[in-house]
Design a protein around this nucleic acid. Sequence first.
RNA 1: CGGGGCGUAGCGCAGCCUGGUAGCGUACCUGCAUGGGGUGCAGGUGGUCGCGAGUUCAAAUCUCGCCGCCCCGACCA
Length: 570
Amino acid sequence: MRSSRFFISTVKEAPADAELASHRLMIRSGMIRRLAAGIYTWMPLGLRVVRKIEAIIREEMNRAGAIELSMPVVQPGELWQESGRWGAYGPELLRFKDRHERDFVIQPTSEEVVTEIARAELRSYRRLPVHFYQFQTKFRDERRPRFGVMRGREFIMKDGYSFHAGIEDLEREYRNMHETYTRIFTRLGLKFRAVAADTGAIGGTGSHEFQVLADSGEDAIAWCPGSDYAANLELAEAVAPAGKRRQPSEAMKKVPTPGKTTCEEVAALLGLPLERTVKAIAVVHEGAFCLLLVRGDHSLNEVKAGKLPELQPFRFATEAEIEQRLHCRAGYIGPVGADARVAVIADRTVAAMSDFVCGANEPGFHLSGVNWGRDLPEPARIADIRDVVEGDPSPDGKGPLRIQRGIEVGHIFQLRTKYSAAMNALFVDDKGATRPMEMGCYGIGVTRIAAAAIEQCHDERGIAFPRPIAPFEVCLVPIGLHKSAAVREAAEKLHGELAAAGVDVLLEDRDERPGVLFADMDLIGVPHRLVVSERGLAAGSAEYKGRTATAPENVPLAGAVPFLLERLKA
RNA sequence: CGGGGCGUAGCGCAGCCUGGUAGCGUACCUGCAUGGGGUGCAGGUGGUCGCGAGUUCAAAUCUCGCCGCCCCGACCA
């Protein structure tokens, strides 16, 4: 490819509202152009990256035995009524009517359509298992699209759906996909981690997310360096503290804390560590009030709390509700002497505390030296309701946990019979009985991967794409191509030879100054660069530099092609 | 959905308070010079100032309404 015939449109300044490095660099390199909130055009340069990501995923999905098809973006509302998601999905599902006033949706995923196919095509156990997948444009009307294509409304996703005669076979395919995804993200050149994920309302035996590690990620993951334990923070278990609770050593005291409503302020006022305080969070479940107790330096895990039977579902109490029910201002509420009708759920850590500080249920006062069993009854309900923190013991007992941030790029899920049962996707088994099929679903955010890769691989000069997904593998930068016949001839020859060897090479033949060409190639992230100049030709050499290398090196002109082929293998 | 902010040339911004010929940087075009890290000089092109009303002799500027976008928060995959 010649840059003069391609379309390179880099800019020096990115829009002021682009916060993330990947977002800024995708705009600056001309990979994408924003059309509306969360909706982007993939410009030729960006599309090359997307196509390379797709090609790797496709190759591995095919190798794993999945079969590609393509389902419609526009789907009849009827099908969504049938699965129950018409009502359940909420405003994120984009709905519209056609000229006949019939309901349609733009698919956010395709469980309904694929299940419709399965129930028509897969009538016998003899046709199972089957795994269909597609690359397709999705639309989710996100409340707050942001970070460019990282959380866009329109995006490309590889979504796969498998159908099985039994749970064992579903589990086999689930393991197959776990391995396949691991291969895919490894081939894409990403640093990632597979983590256990929340199975949400569907339940089932398993769900894993594949998270690309990046400090800017929206998800937090907890993992144990001493074992293979890894889970989304939403799910990660905080085990009960080891050992017995310390004996009380202080008397309970009411201390004035005017204007101090947070644990931080109270701890600072009393000169105590934050770990000695307890915060009480008032929540409401079906009209019933409940106090959740979490240590002052910990934070409530809403997902874990929401799974407790007595809280499912819950919402936070408003300040007005707190005053009305507890007769106390928010900021001073606590478990001591609380209304007996208000249930109290103590986090495991809180249940093991002694001589702690909490609200006195009286505006302007807290209690210090509070002890379970003496100043208030032993907690009736103890549960794991906090986020784990760095250094907490791993649930598998194999050392302390670490916390890292990640970008979710893949998710595999055992759906079981949620859709097949709702939509009558039945098959006849080997005993002649009719049963709903077991289903699995497996998604990869293709366009999000492009952003995640940049998030992970960039520097002050621009993008440093991993070779497998770079828009071009090699760029030839001739100095003075439009002035020197010798340079032109040498560059053209190298271009021809590299292209013939199957290398995705870009010849920078634009009539620009060298500085512009260097800056652009660094910005768009081409991993290998070969410079051809009169100076080099005189010495019979060309200059090679890897995108992330600190210094260039000279290679003999005659050996440049084999040299590059060797570098491309690495 | 609640709170805050912003809409002026492709991009980044000034001008608005105090109404009177629409500006700067960059990008783009032309010419000359330059030619190993976003080159210099000179000359140019490009804007219904988000949209619609209103006030006024006169509105980018003041008033009202609408739309769009961004940030924070709540909600959710």
